[in-house]
Amino acid sequence: MGASALAPVDDAAPAEPAAASSDLEVVELAAGFGGHAVFRRVGFRVARGESVAIIGPNGAGKSTLLRSIIRLIEPTEGAVRLVGQEVRMLRERELRRLRSRIGFVFQRHNLVARLSALTNVVHGAQARTDGPRTWLQSLAPPALRDEAMDCLSRVGLAHVAGRRADRLSGGQSQRVAIARMLMQRPQLVLADEPVASLDPSAGEEVMSLFAGLMRTSGLTVVFTTHNLHHARAYADRIIGLAGGSLAFDLPAGAAGEGQLARLFGARDG
């Protein structure tokens, strides 16, 4: 559980090096758009079963970093080793296979609005079941439908399986998105501010459900958040990102209020 020695770390000592084998290792990673670097020389390691929160002000590069890990955005420099694979070396088919093992929860649920909750969850099996069987729940074989129903039950939404996604509340939509991610049977989960688009009450509920599911399944999780309470309550480690660089990497218990507050103050500095 440690920060890469290559990353600039200030303010506090880095967390202890990983004792267990790591599921994710980010080395000197950089990414940007049109010649402008969003983040640079970022490095950290996430051990199997660990939960890591990445915090930082708007524009710090949190979402871009998470997307770069599975190449939804192509990194410009550095390396990513994800569940034992060198991500930047993978060809398209291999990348697809790798992505199928990595759950990704977006800030907005990103469900297909006109389709039912159940169909959206069935989509989670696309990478392991080729062809039209995962395009619509009505085409899915019974085993796949049962599994999707089970995923919906795990997020407490079996009763809305037939409801169109655009008729669900914000909290329900995000829970369906989590069920879709569970349907992938992921080995590691990346979550980009998973409750930022929800009201505080729904946000607490969904975050608690999400963290509970991850803990129960023993999954490795990396999530970004603005919410310091969530970072402290649900993460084993907190990584601070500011101005496109790593600011600190600490065990959750060691991150002090002042340190976290200074990170958000850095936006204007």
């Binding site: 992505r99 759950g103 990704f104 989509h123 696309q126 990478a127 995962t134």
Partner: peptide, 21 residues
């Protein structure tokens, strides 16, 4: 574009993404 990105992120093929999202 959100559902497209979600399907791409979970490893869907291009044709799967087009037909599903």
């Amino acid at each position: 574009k959100g559902p497209r990105e979600a399907l791409t992120a979970l490893g869907a093929s291009r044709i799967g993404m087009v037909c599903s999202a």
